[in-house]
Design a protein around this nucleic acid. Structure first.
Length: 444
RNA sequence: GGCGACGUGGCCGAGUGGUUAGGCAGAGGUCUGCAAAACCUUGUACCCCAGUUCGAACCUGGGCGUCGCCUCCA
């Protein structure tokens, strides 16, 4: 009944105990809206969608807030390149984000704060950091001084000295320490800018999440989530800023990080150029199938993209769907309870969707044996946010006529004719199957 | 170099100190006019070397290999 979550901060699974149950405050780092989402984004948001679904299933009231980073170097560069206003560019990709994630079955967050709409909170936090001596200003830039924040490195388990030893040459000579990071950047010609006590400029990347998360939830949140690539420096910096500014810790009680999608063993990322956008993938694969593909692997482990794997998954998903719709009577109560309990236990254990799917397939075998229990399969799948789609009953009337003729031929034991019709149907994408319950069909 | 993750049967992929993961593919069988689907049976897996242990693929140490972060990145 208790949920255990792996916490990056402590590097172990912990009993999940939010600050004020049943309320759960969950902040998920969102996308920078300058391009279409790819499979890696889908992985992250499908994973944390499952986290949220399961916590809600367990009776928690989850408030999910997820930001859009809508001002940064890439956005500005892209907008200039395309000759459009940055607001127009970000709006386009926000819409694209929602379209892609809605299709994947990712539930929408309660709120999507944007950096450009959070300037007062961002500036207020920077002012606080300056007042308290955690930050310093140089020529319109404000930097966070990690020398003043002792626990720096707690999340990523980095030692400051080693980082400094390995640090690359810093071009920014205004910094007192190469590891200091920028809170506020002065405007360069042609860039969007906001007024601040340090002149026109815009916020650094890390500060926006700290400001928006604390604006939404106060100084201490329950869950903070994002990709493993955000552990350092982004989340490390968020912790430093937030705890320094609010004086309260921990900023987040549980830090959750998803693993990457890889392609040919390499991380799928824009900078490597080896990404598949969801837009492309949806033309070839049902988003529901892609969700299945993504949840097949535990969220913290890497998932290797391959089309052959997705096609194998399609076969597996079809098997579940067929059983779910073939045997519409409910499962015996004891069986239902048994599988449900195993399924829930799998998800309680750090959202182990892989294990949960194993339970689902075991249940499927039982359903096929007993010839009842289809609703159980649909119910468990739904808990993962998956549909077990039924073949559409809308068939071309001419195809229906052929099926009818074939059934007739079989009844008359005219097998030459029935086989001919089966071939004909196959050419038209319909597989005729003879079962003890009569002729059935499916699309191929 | 620092930190982190991983190395499981043909492929993918969970997990556990001694008992079946699961999926896909394969083989045999039941059913069927033949197929298909489904079901049953089947594979005796855990990178290498030491150590702890009555017992290790699972714990410890070492090695080899792969990947990620250390710069923007889900």
């Amino acid at each position: 009944m208790s949920v255990y979550v792996y916490n990056t901060l402590t590097q172990q699974k912990e009993l999940f105990e939010p600050w004020a149950p049943p309320q759960v405050h969950m902040y998920v780092c969102g996308v920078t809206v300058y391009d279409h989402c790819h499979l890696g984004h889908a992985r992250a948001y499908a994973a944390f969608d499952l986290v949220r679904r399961h916590l809600e299933y367990r009776g928690y009231r989850v408030t999910h807030v997820q930001n859009f980073t809508d001002v940064d170097d890439k956005i500005i560069a892209r907008a200039q390149e395309l000759g459009v206003a940055h607001e127009e560019l970000t709006r386009t990709y926000e819409d694209a984000y929602f379209a892609a994630m809605d299709a994947l079955g990712v539930n929408r967050a309660q709120d999507y704060p944007r950096a450009t709409q959070s300037m007062p909170q961002i500036i207020a936090m920077i002012v606080r950091l300056l007042d308290q001596g955690y930050a310093y200003e140089v020529n319109g830039s404000v930097y966070f001084s990690i020398a003043h924040y002792a626990p720096y490195g707690q999340l990523s388990k980095r030692d400051r000295k080693q980082m400094e030893a390995g640090a690359r040459v810093e071009v920014d000579t205004h910094k007192k320490d190469p590891l200091d990071f920028v809170l506020w950047k002065p405007q360069k010609a042609g860039e969007p800018a906001w007024d601040s006590p340090w002149g026109l400029g815009r916020p650094g990347w890390h500060i926006e999440c700290s400001a928006m998360a604390t604006a939404a939830f106060g100084p201490r949140i329950d869950i903070h989530a994002g990709g493993q690539d955000l552990i350092f420096p982004h989340h490390e910096n968020e912790i430093a800023q937030s705890e320094a500014a609010t004086g309260q810790k921990p900023f987040a009680k549980y830090w959750l990080h998803n693993g990457f999608v890889t392609l040919d063993k390499q991380k799928m990322s824009k900078s490597l150029g080896n990404v598949f956008t969801l837009r492309e993938l949806y033309q070839r694969y049902d988003p529901n199938l892609l969700r299945f593909f993504l949840l097949r692997v535990h969220y913290r482990h890497p998932i290797h993209f391959s089309t052959t794997q997705i096609e194998e998954d399609a076969a597996a998903l079809k098997r579940l769907s067929q059983a779910a719709h073939e045997f519409t009577q409910p499962a015996p109560e004891a069986m239902h309870a048994e599988f449900q309990a195993q399924f829930d236990a799998a998800l309680d254990d750090d959202f182990n969707s892989t294990e949960a799917m194993a339970v689902l397939f075991n249940a499927c075998r039982e359903v096929n044996k007993l010839k009842k229990g289809g609703p159980l399969l649909s119910k468990l799948a739904k808990q993962l946010g998956l549909d077990l789609p039924k073949e559409e009953s809308t068939l071309d009337p001419r195809i229906l006529e052929l099926l009818k003729q074939r059934a007739q031929a079989r009844a008359e034991k005219n097998f030459m004719e029935s086989d001919r019709l089966r071939d004909l149907l196959k050419q038209r994408g319909v597989l005729a199957k003879d079962t003890p319950q009569g002729q059935k069909w499916e699309r191929v």
